[in-house]
Amino acid sequence: MDASAAVAPPAGGGRNLHRFANPGRFLRLSGKVLPWLAAAGVLLTAAGLVWGLVFAPADWQQGDAVRIMYIHVPTAWLASAGYAALALCSLASLVWRHPLADLAAAEIGPVGAAATGLCLATGSLWGKPMWGAWWVWDARLTSVLVLFFLYLGHIALVRAFDDPQRGARAGAILALVGAVDLPIIKFSVEWWNTLHQPATITLTGAPTMYLGMLWPLFLSALGMSFGFVAIVVARTRAAVMERRIRALLAARARDEPQHETSPAGVA
């Protein structure tokens, strides 16, 4: 009935990967995890945003406009991380023919595009009072805009095929080609002389930021990441169930030959 469930688990190192390729197991596991993910996402985001928007101090130079940062920075980080996840799913789908990776990649696209759009919009709102312009064509902004278009192209491509398998394959190839944009975004503020400031928080050095602002930022980034994962998991669950329903309907249509059958789109 469900073709993806019939994939034989290979012996050796790939077994762990394929344990989670079983849609039934994914549905059971994700059903248990999803409420926790969603709750953590909502609570942490709310805590981070309330702290950041109400209690954190205003910047001595930027005033209250600095509070846009508590949304802008997490969405920017999610835009890049989301595309990295998309590229990883695409790799798993191309190399191991991982059936869930196809679905997850198709579902990450719109969520990541929303995060990128939010990042661009908040950045633009901040740019008007700070830089005096809604938009400047510096390297960081341009590369994020290209990322936004890559997301949109991926969304359009995956859904443009009658055979979902073909759409997933084409989308995976495109996502991997587009992944060259990620390092460009990361290093754009160092390679070029941009108006956008370079990274304040790095893995190796101490943050050059007041702790009273760093904590709410950290909380809202963590919360939005949980929220991102929760939305993607919920969408993937919906996609798995949708595929099952399609397969069931197609099976019923096959059993009753007097009805019009539509073989397209059956996995």
Partner: peptide, 17 residues
């Protein structure tokens, strides 16, 4: 885009970025 429904429209969207 080979075999896609609106391949001709989709193609510039993918290549231009």
């Amino acid at each position: 885009v080979l075999g896609a429904r609106r391949g001709g429209v989709l193609l510039p969207l993918l290549v231009l970025p």
